[in-house]
Amino acid sequence: MGVLWMSFMLKERMESEELMLLRLLKARGGLVDDSRFWNLEKGYQGEMLFDKWFSGVDGEWIVVNDLLLEHGGSLFQIDSLVIGGDRVYLFEVKNFEGDFLLEKDRWYSGSKEIKDPLSQMQRCETALRQLLSSLGYQLPIESSLIFINPEFTLFNCSPKLPIIFWSQLNRFCHKLLKQSASSGKLHARHSRLAEKLCELHMEKSPYERLPEYRYEELRKGIVCVGCGGMGVRHHYRMIECESCGSKEALDTALLRSINECRSLFPQIKISTKIIHDWIGETVSKKVIQRVLQINFSLIGYGKSANYVKETQRLIRTDIKA
């Protein structure tokens, strides 16, 4: 989640912690709900496609991605919030694929009824309007449900609904350009709003659903950065995947593997021995120790010694004091 001025820089969207951990578990043979995983994966890919498209929309904007906010005891998520000179744009992005039917406010995928994404967006808009009002902002909100996948079709869709299909994105871009040109310049007040929303953003989502997993049950080795497989071989200062041929610097792969272990098992004390086991003993302890010493701080002595990030060490020092 972050803020950018589109005319100056492009901010890459970050995947959710849940998706990152599920991807790691899936690569290492953990029991993962495939339906949940692929829904998150496809949603993330759709949001990335939207970001790529919006990066080509000229104009003065402040974009805040991946907001999780709370107001009046209710939580609501925003895929992309765009602040313009005279209004706020709320974009709900869906990466649905295939034929869907809208019938009397009910949505169907084949014969299966699904959650109404329009109602979801409208509830989000209501909560956002109330939140903005409480912050002293009366900017109008313009909401759009974006179906980013070109292979998506919705039957019985009224043209009056705030829905944008892939085939309409070019025309929608022209509309945004005209609105931006007539809405005036952005000011410090707009920037303060974006910063305040970032401050209110909740980092930890209560919607995350991770399966139970244990260290002993997961496959050990180095996960390929290209295909996510574990058939990598080490030679000199590089590793290479036997499946897809992806190559990666050894130190980079080791640091990534260390951080994977820290993410999945924050309670485990990181040591040379632990990481040697975590990567399937594919690299010597001497090399692992060198990477740990460069990127982490060693605390403790003897068997209790372990590596931490500097921020962790400061927190522990504060607690001890």
Score class of each variant (00 low, 15 high):
residue 5 W to Q: 04
residue 5 W to Y: 03
residue 6 M to F: 05
residue 6 M to S: 13
residue 12 E to V: 00
residue 13 R to E: 09
residue 27 A to P: 01
residue 31 L to G: 06
residue 34 D to I: 15
residue 40 L to S: 01
residue 41 E to K: 11
residue 42 K to V: 12
residue 43 G to F: 09
residue 46 G to W: 14
residue 47 E to S: 07
residue 49 L to M: 15
residue 53 W to C: 11
residue 55 S to G: 05
residue 57 V to Y: 06
residue 60 E to H: 15
residue 60 E to V: 09
residue 63 V to W: 04
residue 65 N to M: 02
residue 66 D to R: 10
residue 66 D to F: 06
residue 70 E to Y: 06
residue 73 G to A: 06
residue 75 L to T: 10
residue 76 F to W: 12
residue 77 Q to A: 08
residue 77 Q to Y: 12
residue 78 I to A: 09
residue 79 D to M: 11
residue 79 D to F: 11
residue 80 S to I: 04
residue 82 V to P: 08
residue 84 G to T: 11
residue 84 G to I: 09
residue 89 Y to E: 08
residue 90 L to P: 13
residue 91 F to T: 07
residue 92 E to W: 14
residue 93 V to Y: 13
residue 94 K to I: 03
residue 98 G to E: 10
residue 98 G to F: 11
residue 101 L to Y: 09
residue 101 L to C: 02
residue 102 L to S: 08
residue 104 K to T: 04
residue 105 D to Q: 07
residue 106 R to P: 05
residue 106 R to C: 11
residue 107 W to T: 11
residue 109 S to Q: 15
residue 114 I to E: 08
residue 118 L to M: 11
residue 120 Q to Y: 15
residue 121 M to D: 10
residue 121 M to F: 12
residue 121 M to E: 07
residue 122 Q to N: 14
residue 122 Q to L: 15
residue 123 R to C: 06
residue 125 E to V: 07
residue 125 E to P: 02
residue 135 L to Q: 04
residue 138 Q to H: 12
residue 138 Q to F: 08
residue 144 S to K: 13
residue 146 I to G: 01
residue 151 E to W: 05
residue 153 T to H: 14
residue 154 L to M: 11
residue 157 C to V: 06
residue 158 S to D: 14
residue 160 K to S: 13
residue 161 L to F: 09
residue 164 I to N: 07
residue 165 F to K: 15
residue 165 F to A: 05
residue 167 S to D: 11
residue 167 S to A: 12
residue 167 S to N: 12
residue 168 Q to D: 03
residue 168 Q to V: 01
residue 169 L to D: 01
residue 169 L to H: 08
residue 170 N to V: 02
residue 171 R to N: 12
residue 173 C to K: 12
residue 178 K to I: 10
residue 181 A to G: 07
residue 182 S to P: 02
residue 183 S to A: 13
residue 190 H to N: 00
residue 193 L to F: 00
residue 194 A to R: 04
residue 194 A to L: 09
residue 195 E to A: 06
residue 196 K to S: 03
residue 206 P to D: 09
residue 208 E to G: 07
residue 210 L to W: 03
residue 210 L to T: 01
residue 211 P to S: 14
residue 214 R to C: 00
residue 220 K to H: 13
residue 223 V to Q: 05
residue 223 V to N: 02
residue 224 C to A: 13
residue 224 C to E: 05
residue 224 C to T: 05
residue 226 G to P: 03
residue 229 G to S: 06
residue 234 H to I: 11
residue 241 C to S: 07
residue 243 S to P: 00
residue 243 S to W: 02
residue 246 S to T: 15
residue 247 K to R: 15
residue 248 E to P: 02
residue 248 E to G: 05
residue 250 L to Q: 05
residue 259 N to W: 14
residue 259 N to K: 15
residue 262 R to F: 10
residue 262 R to L: 09
residue 264 L to W: 02
residue 265 F to D: 00
residue 272 T to F: 04
residue 273 K to L: 07
residue 274 I to G: 02
residue 277 D to V: 10
residue 277 D to Q: 10
residue 287 V to H: 12
residue 288 I to Q: 04
residue 290 R to H: 10
residue 290 R to D: 04
residue 293 Q to C: 03
residue 298 L to A: 07
residue 299 I to C: 00
residue 300 G to C: 00
residue 304 S to W: 01
residue 310 E to D: 08
residue 310 E to G: 01
residue 318 D to Q: 09
residue 321 A to D: 02
residue 321 A to I: 03
